[in-house]
Design a protein around this nucleic acid. Structure first.
Lengths: 208, 208
DNA sequence: CTCGCGATGTCGCCATGTGACATGGCTCAG
DNA sequence: CTGAGCCATGTCACATGGCGACATCGCGAG
């Protein structure tokens, strides 16, 4: 669900002092990719370009990232951990648990980086390939949430429905938050949208 | 949302009689792709292979399909039309309208082709690339449904929430229907899952 | 009959991704 | 101190995806 990261500080050196190869190859590649995607667009940017700007070789890029798109999606792991943690620790009805997890994530991970998120979002929107990848990533995130829910004893259907509904709420709230004019906090928007969703789905399926 | 088709009968000739070039190039390519994907798997199949089996050239494939994946996703247009039509014609609460549309689609388009759908699904599940494409296609379908809903005067948020919720219901019902042991009808499953979803999301967001 | 057009084939090109192998600097045993 | 070995990186080569430009072929219109 909308990974944010860039400029990570992992890889400070896998063993202190080293100055053997310039440090944080991965971080440099992410940053280079981000810049180039903004400057020329995703399709107009070559993996070789990215590697060059990071002072590395094409082959190295592919050793650190599965493919060209992946350079934009490094937040996932952190986000997934955060979500799963809250799900595991919160006791409430399933849907509420999921909403709580998203709210917490909004506060801990997104709140500060609105501008970054907007830039990233505009890159993604410019390329169908990136949109597909984003979809897949958020799908994986939701699958993890659902698994965490099942680990608490919920049956598969309930876990899936609560998770997907929460995901829907998040996506809508996120879209509003990212919009150029929005100014409520993401956390507030989530609560707000969750309420609207409850209202909409409360009716019975109706026969025809 | 899970396109089904293959063996279409479009292109019966854009001008009746013609037997100039072997007819239904597109259909032949779809069928060839479907077969080959099943025989060797998606990645192990080359576009040139597909074209060859259909008695055509690689370049022709690319004139008829945007990319290799697209050969598996030709049902979309028909499905989209069907959904939009029902949405436009049904008067009820938004969520119910969406559910009605999916039910109708289940009856008109899916009911008969369970085996075909299963084969297609197993192909898709075997390749991340295809999964991404499926996600994007279903996203587009839902966007169309949402647009149809807005055309009836609903505000964007309501339309989106109703649509996405309906989509969630469909996906869950579909997953059960496709599962090797399921035997209820897809339409029934949809109604059933819709009810479960109502129950799950009815609670209030809760503060923490 | 010939002309034209539309569907197809041919060629060639660049970028994505990946395997196999080369290299060079760091670390650690001795 | 020194050599063995490891590991991140670079080099090379290659299959495939995708696409632009141009050639061809067969039918229907005049």
């Amino acid at each position: 669900m909308a990974q944010v990261t860039i400029m990570s500080q992992r890889d400070i050196g896998y063993h202190r002092r080293m100055a053997r190869w310039r440090p944080d190859a991965r971080g440099r590649l992410e940053a280079a990719a981000f810049e180039l995607f903004r400057e020329r667009g995703f399709e107009q940017t070559t993996v070789a370009d990215i590697a060059a700007r990071a002072g590395l070789d094409k082959r190295t890029f592919y050793r650190l990232f599965g493919d060209k798109r992946e350079a934009l999606f490094s937040g996932s792991e952190r986000v997934e951990e955060a979500l799963v943690k809250v799900v595991a620790e919160t006791n409430a009805a399933p849907f509420e648990v999921v909403i709580a997890a998203f709210r917490q994530m909004a506060v801990d991970i997104f709140a500060d980086r609105r501008e970054l998120v907007r830039m990233r979002q505009s890159i993604i929107e410019s390329s169908p390939e990136l949109q597909e990848r984003e979809l897949r990533k958020t799908g994986a995130l939701l699958a993890a949430v659902s698994a965490a829910l099942r680990a608490k004893g919920l049956d598969e259907t309930t876990a899936t429905l609560a998770t997907e509904s929460g995901g829907t709420v998040f996506r809508v709230a996120y879209a509003r938050w990212v919009a150029p004019d929005g100014d409520s906090s993401l956390a507030d928007l989530i609560v707000q949208v969750a309420t609207e969703l409850s209202a909409i789905t409360s009716s019975s399926p109706g026969r025809r």
